[in-house]
């Protein structure tokens, strides 16, 4: 019997936020339709490196495993993507796994993306309803508007658009494409539009929309294919119009 086919995995390990990173290599048994999550589970079941050293299971975030929860974003062969949909057979080996680099590392491949949720607060990414009591139906909406808005509302806050953005780094607290696109979504909704101004003001603050430099990496990296660059352009137009009005009549 021939040797079973192996999957070689190199994982960047980091015991905690203040520890130095190091690399570990694993050799796993190949099976059809394997993805990166399956590889990480194999390691958890038998945490032994390629050269036979005992180690610990790799810490990583995951939940839905069908690319709607946004948990398992990481760098796979240097590219930001979701681990659950990264099929082993489509990746050159050894497969390199690293944590996203634009967020603080918690441990191994797990990072802290609370910045994104804080940003959502900052731009008031919600429809300010009066209450949950029965106030009748919502506003009517043209199917065309829904078809434009729905793709935007599929953003899973994975952070890949921030990861690939050259303007997001330790020197610059740019909110990133995902949040700008959310502002567009809420400004598009008939009720949300009543409060468009507040959101635009937030976007015109430090780290806001002006920090976008149009590298357009975000739209390429988005696993949900959200038209992020359209959103940014659209929000840019809304923002400067409001800024001009504020300046003229303010």
């Amino acid at each position: 019997m021939g040797e079973t086919k192996k999957v070689i995995l190199r994982v960047k390990r980091q015991a905690g936020p203040k520890h130095a990173p190091r690399w570990e290599e694993f050799a796993l048994n190949w099976r059809p339709a394997m993805n990166v999550i399956i590889c990480l589970r194999d390691i958890a079941e038998n945490p032994v490196t390629r050269d036979g050293k005992k180690t610990t299971p790799v810490t990583y975030e995951s939940n839905c495993l069908e690319e709607v929860c946004g948990s398992c974003a990481m760098l796979i062969n240097g590219k930001a993507r979701m681990a659950c949909s990264a099929l082993v057979d489509s990746l050159p080996q050894p497969i390199r796994l690293e944590p996203l680099s634009k967020f603080p590392v918690v441990r191994d491949l797990a990072v802290d993306r609370s910045f994104m949720f804080e940003s959502l607060k900052r731009v008031k990414a919600w429809i300010p309803i009066d209450g949950t009591y029965d106030l009748g139906e919502g506003p009517r909406m043209a199917p065309e508007t829904q078809e434009q808005a729905y793709p935007l509302s599929r953003c899973i806050s994975c952070g890949n658009c921030l990861e690939v953005c050259p303007q997001v780094n330790e020197n610059n607290a740019f909110v990133g494409a995902a949040i700008i696109s959310q502002v567009r979504l809420f400004n598009m909704h008939p009720t949300g539009a009543m409060h468009a101004r507040e959101r635009l003001e937030a976007l015109m603050g430090p780290g806001g929309i002006a920090d976008c430099a149009n590298a357009q990496n975000c739209v390429k990296a988005c696993p949900k294919e959200i038209p992020l660059t359209e959103s940014i352009a659209e929000m840019n137009r809304q923002a400067w119009k409001q800024a001009l009005l504020g300046w003229l009549f303010g």
Binding site: W126, I127, I129, T132, D134, L135, G136, E137, G138, R140, M141, A142, P143, Q146, A149, Y150, S153, F186, H189, T191, G192
Partner: peptide, 17 residues
């Protein structure tokens, strides 16, 4: 109705319902 008011992007008919 509540979810609709909260901004859920439900699919719509030609009449916007």
């Amino acid at each position: 109705d509540l979810l609709d008011r909260m901004g859920v992007m439900f699919n719509r008919t030609t009449e916007g319902l």
